Amino acid sequence: MSRPENIPDEVKGSQFTQVGGLRTHAYVRGKGEPLVIVPGLGCASWMYLRLARELGKKRRVYVYDPPGHGYSEGRWDYPLHIEQLSDHLAAWLEQSGLGCAPMLGHSLGGEVILDLAARYPHCTTALIACAPTGVPENPNVAVQLLRLLRDLPRERLQLLGLGFKAYANVGARRIVLLAHDQERHRTGPLLGRIGVPTLLIDGSRDPVIHRWTVEAIQKGIPDASGVVIRGGTHALTDSHPRAVARFTLDFLAEVEAEKRRS
């Protein structure tokens, strides 16, 4: 691991791990049992600091930057597919020493953790998917963009600045290619293979992910529950960090209590 001097003050808790020859970043905060946050398409760890602060009061939180996102290295030809994102996440869990941990994924990050749980069942004990993409199918890139444009006025102005920085860092080419791959990727057939408790969190004011999409995911996972945050936007992890953290921590406490009883 290394820690370069140019990391901004707000992420001085950064750690870097070599994964497949790529330096992979995670912002780490808090103490206790681990919890990993997986960002959405084009997003970066610095967009989830409000949520990390809330969760860090009870857990040791790792805000993971996927390859080519945030402070993590990528290659021009990698990653371009959803499976590559979940493959890298599984490898990072091993290389970082976490091995297995609960996952909280937002938007595309929610689709990634669902893919991870189905294909790498040894890597996680519980899932929290916030406004997840993937079921029954992802819309084409033009529709995704239109939905996102509808959501932008509903988000905090400060988040928009952080988001533009993150998107510029990832680059339009990678974002478009990953978005195109979402049309190909089918999460639906994988849902029945998910064997860990799953919480789906939806925002009532989210124009990007429709309520019926989240309900379809919930029906497909054997042990899934759902909750709607009133007033939550697509970036509900930023607009309502306390509510997301409360539901997440309560859910994990129940999961861990049930595990102790069994």
Score class of each variant (00 low, 15 high):
174 R>Q: 15
72 S>W: 04
255 V>Y: 03
81 H>C: 01
209 I>V: 14
225 S>C: 02
212 W>D: 05
104 L>F: 13
254 E>Y: 03
56 G>W: 14
203 G>H: 01
261 R>Y: 09
6 N>S: 13
54 E>R: 14
232 G>T: 11
17 T>C: 12
105 G>Q: 12
141 V>C: 00
125 T>S: 15
137 E>R: 15
45 S>N: 09
116 L>F: 03
94 E>I: 00
43 C>Q: 08
262 S>E: 05
180 H>Y: 13
169 N>H: 09
14 S>T: 08
160 L>R: 15
1 M>Q: 15
257 A>H: 13
118 A>G: 07
97 G>H: 05
15 Q>Y: 00
210 H>P: 05
156 R>V: 02
96 S>V: 10
68 G>D: 01
136 P>F: 04
188 G>A: 14
113 I>A: 09
218 Q>R: 15
248 T>W: 02
50 R>K: 12
185 H>R: 13
251 F>E: 02
27 Y>C: 00
212 W>I: 03
88 H>L: 09
108 L>T: 06
160 L>G: 12
124 T>K: 03
187 T>F: 06
170 V>N: 12
119 R>Q: 13
212 W>S: 03
123 C>M: 07
209 I>N: 01
23 R>S: 15
2 S>P: 00
14 S>N: 05
243 A>T: 02
156 R>H: 11
191 L>M: 10
224 A>S: 06
13 G>N: 05
103 M>I: 03
218 Q>I: 04
48 Y>H: 15
54 E>P: 04
73 E>Y: 04
118 A>F: 01
90 A>H: 13
2 S>F: 02
156 R>P: 07
25 H>R: 09
108 L>I: 08
23 R>T: 15
30 G>Q: 05
159 L>V: 12
203 G>C: 03
154 R>H: 08
5 E>L: 04
54 E>M: 11
234 H>I: 07
171 G>A: 05
187 T>W: 02
113 I>V: 10
166 A>N: 09
76 W>N: 10
219 K>S: 01
212 W>H: 08
31 K>S: 15
178 L>N: 11
120 Y>H: 12
233 T>G: 11
86 S>V: 06
136 P>V: 06
63 V>L: 04
229 I>Q: 07
113 I>M: 14
54 E>G: 12
38 V>G: 05
104 L>P: 13
144 Q>A: 08
126 A>G: 09
214 V>T: 13
214 V>P: 00
56 G>F: 10
40 G>A: 09
6 N>F: 07
41 L>E: 00
28 V>Q: 10
253 A>F: 04
55 L>I: 11
151 D>G: 01
12 K>D: 07
199 L>H: 09
173 R>V: 13
224 A>G: 12
78 Y>C: 02
33 E>S: 10
241 P>I: 06
220 G>C: 00
124 T>H: 05
6 N>T: 04
